[in-house]
Write a protein that binds this DNA or RNA. Sequence first.
DNA 1: CCGACCCTTCGACCGTCGCCGAAATGTCGC
DNA 2: GCGACATTTCGGCGACGGTCGAAGGGTCGG
Lengths: 235, 235
Amino acid sequence: MEYIVRDADIAPVAALIADPTRAAILTALLGGRALAAGELARMAGVSAATASAHLARLLDGRLVDVVSQGRHRYYRLAGHEVAEVLEVLARVSARPPVRSLRQSRQARLLEEARTCYDHLAGRAGVGLLDRLREGGYLDGHDLTGAGERLLSGLGVDVAGVRRSRRRFAPECLDWTERRPHLGGALGAAITEVLFERGWYRRGNVPRAVVLTEEGREGLAALFSGKGLTSVTPVT
Amino acid sequence: MEYIVRDADIAPVAALIADPTRAAILTALLGGRALAAGELARMAGVSAATASAHLARLLDGRLVDVVSQGRHRYYRLAGHEVAEVLEVLARVSARPPVRSLRQSRQARLLEEARTCYDHLAGRAGVGLLDRLREGGYLDGHDLTGAGERLLSGLGVDVAGVRRSRRRFAPECLDWTERRPHLGGALGAAITEVLFERGWYRRGNVPRAVVLTEEGREGLAALFSGKGLTSVTPVT
DNA sequence: CCGACCCTTCGACCGTCGCCGAAATGTCGC
DNA sequence: GCGACATTTCGGCGACGGTCGAAGGGTCGG
């Protein structure tokens, strides 16, 4: 009956995320791209020295990886588990009040379509899962025969995805929509193909992605005219 | 292209979890029961004054709820979303080295069977999901006809569970087994019935639950002799 | 090689936060 | 009402951690 809490100690990892500057850095990296130390310093609004210290701690805590290229050092999240922590945390955190017009536009862009580390999120991500389910391409947690054909035709290496040790097609609760979108190895593979085909491209706002004209047409053809979202484009 | 990270601020919530004492309090509450301030102080190994200050902050941050009963104040987690954050965080956190014999026994108990806020976790939780899948009771994310009959027979109010706004039967990745167990409204309802029937009871170690003799027999009858786990009892 | 650039390390400052003992508040049993 | 108990509030101490400017390694372009 002695008091000992024998669990994983979650405090050290939480402490790494607890600093506002580090949280900003991690959130910026949630876009999935590797970013240079200087870029991260600017995004977080601190000096290079400060950012460097924070990055060293994140590295030590294995929340980020680094790859040196010439005089740049590119940082990225250490894995999708880290991204999951950030997403879950976002769900219980209050959304900050929108202060400026530009911020409100950025917020709308992120709500429309963004990456959740390596897969599509926001209305587009939720819509993708809905279309796959409605069309009978995905049943429960697995692809149907029709689903395999559809995605193979798009260029997704379904067999390769199945060999991955990562969960195949889990739902990931979207923190803006509060409804599930498609995550896991399949979600990542589909998202990769969407970028390769130029149907989506990365926006100027860190995590945002935008639908291209080709994407609009391609997705409409794929899903009998519906596309992933029915809203008018965010301007 | 200005640097602004317009996301939910995750830093304040992370900061609440980042303190080792608060983390211990939250982890203790992950058992699902409401605990008095004094108990939490003992479990976390701090004075009543210190625990009180921490609880006030957790309350302010909406991570815990409190209910006053006489001269006691019972604290509990504010909801299953909070429990999810703690679980996800545990998955990316290192497991602390086991120091004593008693701790190793406690660790083994938790790995065998515990509650993850309001549903069964550990080997037993993973086993439950496996048995439901193997037996054709659960298909993807939904109960089959056979599943509805099985659980209704046990005393689970399946229709009531379906009316809940919570997700019906999501997978929850177990942090010790690294395999999914059954979460959501259904997982909670089944766990409740297991307690009501006396098949499992809460152990002395905070989050641990133990299989009773009735439970061993009942589960074996239910799942053609297999039970939820095949290991010998933890001593 | 040499200057320009990116990044990290160093040193120093300062605020915040966790901690406890003691006192105050509130509740129960009698 | 009056002690006994659970909990919170107060006051003060000490430590840790975030911040920056300046200086020190590396790396690229010429």
